[in-house]
Design a binder for these strands. Structure first.
Lengths: 354, 354
DNA sequence: GTTAGCACTCTCATGCGTCGAGTGCTAATG
DNA sequence: CATTAGCACTCGACGCATGAGAGTGCTAAC
């Protein structure tokens, strides 16, 4: 049998690795040569299998916990499995329905994201995570100002039907309610719905035509608006659901390990860094074990996908669970959730009665 | 020695119970009769102690894990300990300083509450929890309404310099911007700065008074305002910090138990119910084990205190940890945190440069 | 009421032998 | 030359006995 693949692994070895990983995913036990002869479907004796296993071990795809146990896949083994050997199942209708029905579209983006996270964790029984969507398009719908005491002004930015942000800014002088009303009228008339960059350019052009002080206000208003968007971008955050699910899995069952993991969730930094990597790529991405560069995630895998609205990537979602995970089931769940979330976030979608 | 106490326990038994609990809190082991003779300071032989222990066991204050182990306190034993035997230490200056300095007063109420929760968990190495303050006390400064599409109206409630809340509400008919302006003018003129409860009472009175002659709008005003207030009040929630700290403690170290506990934190309902009980009482309250009525908290204790501004209770804070907990240290921490939080929340406080 | 003495109980750690699973190696085989 | 049967070997899991240590309850004496 000639090697039909460029890889270092022959076809037979690949097939055996596939069976081994599948079996190990199923029951979590080390897989012995006898079991493989039975399940591989190949007409090979255990002894032959052992030779192949020995090769696989030398190449780093599998390892033996101790001398007289079967083999379990290494991270490298899992990596090869998901990259080359995995055949993704199509999702059972019941799951698809669950996702479609139970995704809560009634609230704002935050509620939506929370709901998606819950669904992910519920369907997979792992921890679900979804980053909050960036408001990359940078358009506001309406802006209002309200005078506070002193020189402070409350700026309210209405992004869409559900999202409202507010900030208190310090201006260089006191503005009356009337003045502020004028400003907001002007801004809303001229710029509502426009991209923020356009707004700023236009304002800079107009700067001579308008009275000095009001202009200043507008400038700082635009600054604030920008801050709102930038902050949204920077303040990237994610919603975690079902982290306690992870306590069910034997491979993570020692308290030490779990604590590290939970702490990582709380600090968010490391998790966000990994999720960021997924932001660029499109489609489902898989991080196995320490591949991500973080020791904490040893023994864990992340299955992620970016989600997008109108072709623009707004965020990432996914699940985190033990590396020993039924990828063929988890991948389509993550994939579909990402698509549904993107759709639900799209104000133009026919499903959204905006 | 005559019984100098009305309780079922003689003085000597009480003293021995106290020493036993203290020792058990210190090292977590069952306490034997020999250890007690040594540490009690009483001129008694182990045999005598054993007799007393036997009595204490019959009465349910202590129990023996097995025949030939020492005794450990039961929940009832702990209860008696904290009620009658405990002498609270005064807090080391370093802790007081930590609390005073590290309580973050720069942000709004939410930031403050988060900071308090962190401090609680940091100082005790248990989980800290703080409910968000009810806004029932204060005055709202200003209210504004903004029409959105359909029957939706954006309601903005400015509570103080830092707190601005907004809600999107669904009204029974469409309001024009002018109508809404009238409404907010009316509300601000009549009620700005008034206590929210007064406002509500006044509004309810007005609804009878003016039902006939004033237009439909006014009725809607009442309804709208009511909705905002009610939602504010109902949204009782707490901020949890350092839950992973709990994974350090041996008595909670099995994953099963921890999971139940964490799930309880997530669902919030049970925890909130217990915290509510503490809302009535003033001063530090202690819930030991299942006293609270929830099985989940077996093996755990909550030390809570309500916090108040100007004599009005706004919320509850506390820590949750294993029942085997150095109460003499934890109690003053909770107590002081509650007082500091109340002070930091008080807009009239000289510390707050409002 | 208190105490010394003693038999008893229970946990925990240790060591030992056995079993089962699975391996690596070697020599035989088609 | 790849494949296979056979076999000795290794390792973890389990059950069992054993002994030490800690602490108790009971009884009889003080």
């Amino acid at each position: 049998m000639a090697e039909s693949d460029y890889s270092e692994l022959g076809e037979r070895a690949q097939h055996l690795l596939k069976v081994l990983v599948q079996r190990h995913i199923r029951d979590g036990q080390p897989v012995g040569s006898r079991a493989l002869t039975r399940e591989s479907g190949l007409p090979l004796s255990p002894a032959t299998i052992r030779n192949v296993m020995s090769d696989l071990e030398d190449l780093g795809y599998v390892q033996a916990p101790h001398t007289s146990a079967g083999r379990i896949p290494t991270d490298k083994g899992y990596r090869f499995f998901v990259d080359s050997l995995l055949t993704v199942r199509s999702l059972p209708v019941s799951d698809i329905d669950q996702l479609k029905i139970r995704l809560d579209r009634s609230g704002g983006a935050e509620a939506l994201v929370g709901s998606a996270s819950n669904l992910l964790s519920g369907l997979t029984r792992y921890a679900g995570l979804v980053t909050l969507p960036r408001h990359g398009y940078g358009a506001f719908r309406q802006m209002e100002f309200m005078p506070l005491s002193g020189n402070r002004v409350l700026v309210i930015v209405i992004l869409n039907e559900h999202e409202v942000q507010n900030r208190v800014i310090e201006t260089n002088r006191k503005f009356s309610a009337d003045e502020l009303r004028q400003v907001s009228n002007f801004l809303n008339r001229e710029f509502a719905g426009k991209d923020l960059r356009t707004v700023r350019k236009k304002l800079v052009e107009d700067i001579d035509h308008t009275r000095e002080n009001v202009n200043r206000l507008m400038a700082s208003v635009v600054e604030v608006a920008e801050k709102v968007f930038v902050e949204q971008e920077a303040e990237s955050d994610f919603v975690l659901a079902g982290q306690t699910n992870l306590m069910e899995y034997a491979e993570l069952a020692n308290v030490e390990k779990l604590r590290e993991l939970f702490d990582a969730f709380n600090h968010k930094r490391d998790v966000l860094h990994i999720l960021d990597q997924s932001l660029q790529a499109n489609g489902v991405q898989i991080f196995i074990g320490q591949e991500s560069g973080y020791e904490v995630f040893d023994g864990c895998s992340l299955v992620t996908s970016s989600y997008e609205v109108d072709g623009e990537v707004l965020g990432v979602l996914g699940v985190i669970g033990p590396t020993r995970m039924p990828y063929d089931r988890v991948i389509p769940i993550v994939d579909l959730t990402a698509r549904l979330l993107g759709e639900a976030l799209n104000p133009k979608s026919p499903l959204n009665s905006d």
